[in-house]
Structure formats: structure tokens, C-alpha cells
Amino acid sequence: MDETRKIDLGAVGAWRHADTEPELAVALERLGYGTLWLGNVTDPDLTVVERLLDATETLVLATGIVNIWSNPADRVARSYRRIAERHPDRFLLGVGAGHPEATKQFVRPYQALNDYLDVLDEGGVPVARRALAALGPRVLRLAGDRTAAAHPYLVTPDHTREAREILGAGPILAPEQKVVLETDPVRVRTIGDATLGFYLNLTNYLGNLRRLGFDDTDFADGGSDRLFDALILHGEAARVAEGVRAHQKAGADHVALQLLHPADTDPLPGYRALAEALELGGAGAGAGF
């Protein structure tokens, strides 16, 4: 185990919520996705990460994110060490400050992030195995200075381009990208709006979107078409693949795809179609498993 070497996330990953079942993780691995990102991990013991690593063989697990306010850093560090010893080079610990609307302790987040990273240092979590949720220039620079990777969320290729300029050539840049695999405009908006509307009430995301050139007219009534099209790739898999490549051309090392779909539907066919369009080359691509 060489914890100073840059972790290999692969070119494309899947972003899912922390209740992801092992069967889906195995399927994503077979399709050729390099990393499974788990959003909103609330257990500082990180048992969900360990469970999914136990079920897979090569897939990297990344947290996107562990919230610094609700997960004590010393406990998270112990969890990291336990998991890393069992699954060397397959776990990237992503942490972040979240958003102020969700956390009453949300004060001086930049200093809090630095303090949290100090405790991870003391707890033996190597720089090369941790990532930071980052949107604005200051936190992007912090990600480059004190972690291996920046993980921007709800961003565009323009943000990716700016983030790469700030980070320079070394750190991993791994933006999240939302996807709706539908061609009917009404279904696209229905599926996408169910997720997008939540973020249009959060000041950190609105501030970042304003930096990218959007304004209050784009945030009203669930989001303008211009905003929706910029933040959610939609259409057939081949068209979505073009949007993924736009991030890569802008400087992303890795793109984490969050496939949006109705709650009562299976996401696997969509991830299979995306794997084929992106030519991920996994053993399960095109297979009916």
C-alpha cells in the first residue's frame, strides 16, 4: 500500500446516495466506472463505505461528502485507517462544510475546514487519500494545498475550467454532473426539477452560480431553462457523453455522474447506456446482467 501515490479514480464515476446497495456497486464496477461517490454520508464509522468495498474488487469508493460539522474528525480518521488497511488504495475520503441552511454551527467554515484537516493529519489520513468539496476560489486553493482532489458539485464546464486554472496541473479535479436520460422535454423537467429545486434555496450554490453568470431570473420558479440546461445534461446517452467530454476538455480528471430518475425505477440501465456511450469498456457493458 503506497498512500503517497495519486489514487486512480478512472475517467468517469457514478455519484449515488449513501444507501446504495452492494449489488449496484458490483454492477457499476463491471460496467467500467472507476469510482462510486457516496453523497451525504452521516455515519462517522463509515460502515457503508466498508460494506461496498467488501462487495467489490477494484472499484474506488469516495465520500462526497462527509460533513465536518456532524462527523468528528478523530473518529472519521480512525474509520479511514480501519478501511484503508483492509482495502488499500481504494478509498478517497471526501469532506466538506456543506451549506449554512443545514447546520447551525456553520461559522467560519474556512477555518473549520483547516482545523478538521489538521485532525485528519494527526489521525494518519494521508493527503493523497482525501478530497475536499470546493466551489469558490479560496476553498479550491485549500483543496489543492491540503488534499489530493477537489470535488465541485452542481457546476458547469466553465466552472471546471476556472477550477483547473486555480488548482494548477497537480491536484485531481473531479466535478459532479447531473444527468437525465430522457428525450421528452416534460419528463426531463419533471425528473430534473425534483432535485434542482432543492439547491436553488442554498446560498453557497446560488453564490457560485452567480459567479458563473446566472442571476435571480434564473433562480425563480424552479430555475430557468438556461440554468437547467447548464446544470443537468439530458437527452440520449450519446448527447450526455458530449457534455461529459466538455468537462474533460475543460480540465476535469474525473467526472462523477449522478443519474436522476424516478424513485421507483432501476438506475442500472441508464448507467449501462452511459458506459457504452462513454466507451468505458467494462466487462458488463452491453450485457444483460
Rank of each mutant, 00 (worst) to 15 (best):
M1V: 15
M1Q: 15
M1H: 12
D2F: 10
D2L: 15
T4V: 03
R5V: 12
D8W: 13
L9E: 04
L9Q: 06
G10L: 04
A11P: 14
A11H: 08
V12Q: 07
V12N: 00
R16N: 15
R16Q: 14
A18N: 09
D19C: 07
T20K: 01
T20F: 05
P22F: 08
A25T: 04
V26Q: 14
A27P: 04
E29H: 02
R30P: 04
T35V: 14
L36A: 01
N40D: 14
N40I: 09
L52N: 09
T56S: 07
L61H: 07
T63M: 10
T63K: 01
G64W: 07
V66C: 12
V66F: 02
V66R: 00
W69T: 01
W69E: 02
S70F: 03
N71I: 05
V76H: 03
V76S: 04
A77H: 00
R81A: 13
R81C: 12
R82A: 10
I83N: 02
R86C: 01
D89N: 15
V95E: 06
G96F: 02
G98E: 08
H99I: 11
H99N: 12
E101R: 08
T103A: 10
Q111D: 13
L113N: 09
N114I: 13
N114E: 13
D115P: 05
D115F: 06
D118C: 08
D121V: 09
E122N: 11
G124D: 14
A128F: 04
R129E: 08
A131K: 06
A131E: 01
L132G: 01
V139G: 04
V139C: 09
G144K: 06
D145P: 00
L154S: 07
T156M: 06
P157V: 00
H159M: 01
E162H: 15
R164V: 06
G168C: 10
G170L: 02
P171N: 09
P171E: 12
E176S: 13
K178V: 10
V180K: 07
L181P: 00
L181V: 11
T183E: 14
V188A: 11
V188Q: 13
G192F: 01
L196G: 00
F198I: 14
L200G: 07
N201W: 08
N201G: 13
T203I: 14
N204K: 07
G207C: 07
A220F: 01
D221F: 11
D221E: 15
G223C: 06
R226P: 11
F228M: 15
L231E: 05
I232S: 11
L233H: 05
H234G: 09
A237G: 08
A237R: 08
R239H: 12
R239T: 15
V240I: 14
V240L: 03
A241W: 00
H247Q: 07
K249C: 03
A250S: 15
A252P: 05
A252Y: 01
A252Q: 00
D253R: 07
A256C: 09
A256F: 06
A256R: 09
L257C: 14
H261D: 04
A263L: 12
T265Y: 03
P269M: 12
G270H: 04
A273E: 15
A273R: 12
L274I: 06
A275P: 05
E276V: 13
G284Q: 04
A287M: 14
F289P: 06
